[in-house]
């Protein structure tokens, strides 16, 4: 697809979103070193075109499940950056009230069903959401993101089999960044061609350049439309690369600096797209600077929102373990 099909306004919107995700992540790393954000923090830098392309191709009624590397997905889906940042601070104003942190972002309003940190664990849940939609006659796609590492898990195969068998409206989105944490694809898969796997379950699959936001948007829109129309599940393998460490604890002993440098220099999804926009005459220095200013403002505001947030009250620790506290259950009973 050419840029012309996308249109100038949309294209600039994509750029703005990718820059937002990147600056948000850079800020998160900074806040991590200041110990404002704790626990695990998995940055999405380098992979922005996947989430931006995919989310722009989905509809509000679609369901989304993502992994523990999901800040970008959450923000582009429409969750407030402040609510995401506050979650990482652990504040009650966070999108999961500070109970989930970086890896467990949730938003009922945006049909964002998490933030899953058990690799492969989200896939069966996605199948169930799609089954519910089918049984209720809801016309919607369940978009399920996972990494290349997840394709080793039994749950991946179980989920693809059920979705294929029952022709459910699931769009499987494999974000292949070539490493399962620190283990390179060739070292953990008997057949490193992930694209071969969906065929075993009768699911059509396509490999997409995940560094090209336009290609991602086109492929996801095409696949999602077919899924939505009742054509059964589809699978996209989105080829991408993680520019930063797996998490903030990762010393990156498993890949060379040269390899990372090469990807950054040659395949940066933001720089590549920016060059295309400039070539098309849709972007100049002033417009690019405006995007940076706007994004900086949004990130700053997100941090302010997180800083200003309150901590959850200690007495609420056991709230939401059950619909009703256990003490109340035993007092009031559960008679129908």
């Amino acid at each position: 697809m050419s840029l012309d099909d996308l249109g100038r306004e949309k294209a600039l919107g994509f750029l703005r979103q990718m820059v937002l995700v990147r600056r948000f992540e850079e800020k998160s790393a900074e806040l991590y070193s200041q110990q404002k954000i704790r626990g695990f923090l998995h940055l999405y830098i380098g992979e922005e075109a996947v989430a931006v392309g995919a989310m722009n191709a989905l509809k509000a009624e679609d369901n989304v499940l993502a992994t523990y590397r999901e800040h970008g997905h959450a923000i582009v889906r429409g969750m407030a950056p402040g609510a995401v940042m506050a979650e990482m601070y652990g504040k009650v104003s966070g999108c999961s009230k500070g109970r989930g942190g970086s890896m467990h972002l949730f938003c009922a309003e945006q049909r964002f069903y998490g933030g899953h940190a058990i690799v492969g664990g989200g896939l069966p849940v996605a199948v169930g959401l799609a089954l519910a939609d089918r049984m209720k006659g809801r016309e919607a796609v369940t978009a399920c993101f996972f990494g290349d590492g997840a394709t080793d898990e039994g749950e991946f195969h179980e989920a693809l089999n059920m979705a294929g068998l029952w022709k459910l409206p699931v769009l499987f989105l494999c974000e292949n960044n070539l490493y399962a944490m620190g283990t390179k694809l060739e070292r953990h898969e008997a057949d490193p061609e992930i694209i071969h796997r969906p065929a075993a379950y009768g699911i059509p699959a396509e490999r997409v350049d995940g560094m090209d936001v336009v290609a991602v948007e086109r492929a996801v829109r095409y696949a999602a439309d077919l899924v939505r129309e009742g054509g059964g599940p589809r699978f996209l393998e989105l080829m991408t690369y993680r520019f930063r460490a797996h998490s903030m604890y990762d010393a990156e002993l498993y890949r060379t600096k040269e390899e990372v440098q090469r990807w950054k220099a040659e395949r940066d999804p933001i720089e590549g797209f920016e060059a295309r926009l400039r070539e098309a005459g849709w972007l100049d220095d002033a417009a690019r600077a405006e995007i940076e200013r706007d994004v900086a403002g949004q990130v700053e505001e997100a941090v302010r929102f997180a800083e200003d947030g309150e901590w959850e009250a200690l007495e609420d620790l056991e709230k939401d373990v059950y619909a009703k506290p256990v003490g109340a259950m035993l007092e009031e009973g559960g008679a129908r």
């Binding site: 664990g121 896939l123 069966p124 959401l129 089954l131 519910a132 209720k136 749950e155 059920m162």
Partner: peptide, 15 residues
Amino acid sequence: SGFVGAGIGAALGGM
């Protein structure tokens, strides 16, 4: 794991 997980998803989805 697959069908218990699908049960969880279906419950989340209102079934």
